[in-house]
Design a protein around this nucleic acid. Sequence first.
DNA 1: CCGGATCCGTTTCGATACTG
DNA 2: CAGTATCGAAACGGATCCGG
Lengths: 145, 145
Amino acid sequence: MEDFFRCKCPITSSLDIFGDKWTLVIVKQMLFEEKSTFKDFTESEEAIATNILSSRLKMLEKFGLIEKENHPNNKKTNIYTLTEKALSFTPILIELMIWSKENIQEFHPNLNIHPDLNRIKKNKENAASQIVKSYNQFKKSLFKN
Amino acid sequence: MEDFFRCKCPITSSLDIFGDKWTLVIVKQMLFEEKSTFKDFTESEEAIATNILSSRLKMLEKFGLIEKENHPNNKKTNIYTLTEKALSFTPILIELMIWSKENIQEFHPNLNIHPDLNRIKKNKENAASQIVKSYNQFKKSLFKN
DNA sequence: CCGGATCCGTTTCGATACTG
DNA sequence: CAGTATCGAAACGGATCCGG
């Protein structure tokens, strides 16, 4: 495991885990778009390929960032949820949203800017904790009945 | 340019630009480690290959995130600096540092945690503006005499 | 020597087809 | 529905080359 990481730099090491085009997209879909099954992810706007999805889910599980459980009513459906640990992705995703508006919109005018982005920017900590709270409620609802 | 981006999601679009293992590492080296020449980057702890470095520098330049200029005393040396725009990477890099300590240290105990990380965490906005200020001073010093 | 460009073998990605 | 297998395309990364 030690040699998974390029060097001792924390920033570089975090990119050793999620420095690719897909990992944070999957986390985003879970956190912001209430996606939880394999099929949910493949049907997203981004249309991730199944093999890549599969490999990223395994990797996230290996690092304790997501959990895989059976659907309570449907044993053949697996439900993927973010662990407490993974909720620490929230501030990063908020920063990406902000960065995108400031740096990408000029090249990509159709960007779907979050309607509350200004409010989020003004109080990032509060926004993050609301997002986490709302995700935890969603997570609970997945296992009811 | 429109079709460079996978979809309209801001988070996904930002990953279309720097969702790889190297782009943010280069930005980090400029912002935190006072690196500014091609050779500086190749001599870093991460030891990036010259072809990858070259392609990333071009891409960052294309998006207006870095500038390439001649060294004042040495015409054959190019100096790469972050633009004002690129300084908006700072909050993202701060979040990556924090994430790393909380989520990677258990797998990678030799991680070089920033000595002031707790202070940075307590006041991220202030930390970011100090980092930017300090970078701008460094940038000025590059072009003196 | 420095800043890159080019070449080339290896790994990873990613679209599609396929299986339990 | 949840993945795996396949295979061409792209990216990585080490080595080398070349102009200034």
